[in-house]
């Protein structure tokens, strides 16, 4: 990361507790985007055309669910604060990558018949994590290699 704090897009929102379904749907959507949770009802993503648009649509959905929200473009007041937020996001992705590594290794030790399906699933999972991985941790490469190794094992078995 460069020496100055970057632009972030922030969504401040409130959703009624009941009914809980739209509330949970919105929570899941925010998780899928890989947002940093800065506080109750305040999430952030590094700003680019895509993240801004995605949060705009979620803002719209919050309105339809009877809630309210505002969307902000902001920069952290100090670089160290930004780095803390980035570090938290990096750690969250690292956990997801480690889960992929574990599943890939378990599949390598498991029944050969299951391996092909697991590889497809884990490849899709890696793509999904990659979409919300704004500050890649070292585990990203480990996970990629673990899935690659599992795939190589299948090809060995087939030849």
């Amino acid at each position: 990361m460069s020496g100055t704090a970057g632009q972030w897009v922030l969504l401040a929102y409130r959703i009624p507790r009941q009914p809980s379904t739209p509330r949970i749907t919105i929570w899941r959507k925010l998780d899928r985007l890989g947002v940093a949770r800065l506080g109750d009802g305040l999430v952030a993503l590094p700003a680019d055309a895509r993240t801004r648009e995605q949060l705009e649509w979620i803002a719209e959905e919050i309105g339809e669910a009877g809630g309210s929200s505002t969307l902000w473009l902001a920069a952290a007041a100090s670089l160290s604060q930004e780095q803390d937020v980035a570090e938290e996001m990096r750690r969250a992705r690292a956990v997801e990558y480690r889960a992929v590594v574990e599943q890939a290794r378990a599949a390598a030790d498991g029944r050969p018949g299951e391996r092909a399906r697991t590889v497809k699933r884990l490849q899709a999972e890696l793509r999904k994590i990659g979409r919300r991985d704004f500050f890649p941790p070292a585990e990203r490469e480990t996970a990629r290699l673990a899935v690659q190794a599992l795939n190589a094992l299948i090809e060995e078995g087939a030849s």
Partner: peptide
């Protein structure tokens, strides 16, 4: 666009 009829609605 946000806030118009022909836009994202209900997911």
């Amino acid at each position: 666009m946000r806030g118009v009829e022909l836009s994202h609605h209900g997911g």
